[in-house]
């Protein structure tokens, strides 16, 4: 049931990306190129999505548990840190270079696999490299940096 709900959500999400124009790098470049022939229409995608999702999230928060699942998986409220902002900068550069973000990349993989295959494979490599190599390295450095504080005995 949970997987079925998830499949339907993915399907509707993907149709939304196609209808809105997010799968077209031309449209995305038009939106990001403020100094050129600026096309602000894609602002309505995030606007429409946030406007629609906000009351549904509000409704969900009033429930003890989701309709077909045992618990809500809500992201932890950690502070804004360098890892978040650094990641966002790298993502922004990649999005600005290609006009493609992750959702549209996966939808387009079914439309024109040859044209976008390289991007999707590189993105998958990036996610796995970051999860398996970069994050553990950064975690280890953070733990190491806080170790002396713990080790110093109180006098």
């Amino acid at each position: 049931m949970r997987a079925f709900a998830s499949f339907i959500a993915g399907l509707v999400f993907g149709l939304g990306l196609v209808i809105s124009g997010m799968t077209s790098p031309d449209k995305v470049f038009g939106f990001l190129d403020i100094a050129g022939q600026w096309d602000p229409s894609l602002a309505f995608v995030m606007g429409g999505a946030v406007m629609t999702a906000t009351p549904i999230f509000w409704l969900a928060r009033r429930r003890a548990k989701p309709v077909v699942s045992a618990s809500f998986d809500t992201p932890p409220k950690t502070p804004v840190d360098r890892r978040l902002l650094g990641g966002a900068v790298l993502f922004g550069i990649g999005w600005g270079l290609s006009g493609i973000c992750p959702g549209p990349a996966l939808v387009s993989a079914a439309i024109t696999p040859l044209a976008i295959g390289g991007f999707v494979i590189a993105m998958v490599v990036g996610i796995v490299f970051s999860s398996r190599v970069l994050r553990p390295l950064l975690d280890a450095r953070q733990t190491h940096a806080t170790l002396p504080e713990i080790a110093i005995p109180a006098e």
């Binding site: 939304g16 995608v45 995030m46 429409g48 999505a49 999230f57 077909v68």
Partner: peptide, 20 residues
């Protein structure tokens, strides 16, 4: 874009409401 955005919002809100 607005219509597509509404569909995306329905899907995102729906995934949280139904699957958490």
């Amino acid at each position: 874009p607005l219509l597509g955005g509404v569909l995306i919002g329905l899907a995102a809100g729906g995934l949280y409401l139904f699957a958490g």
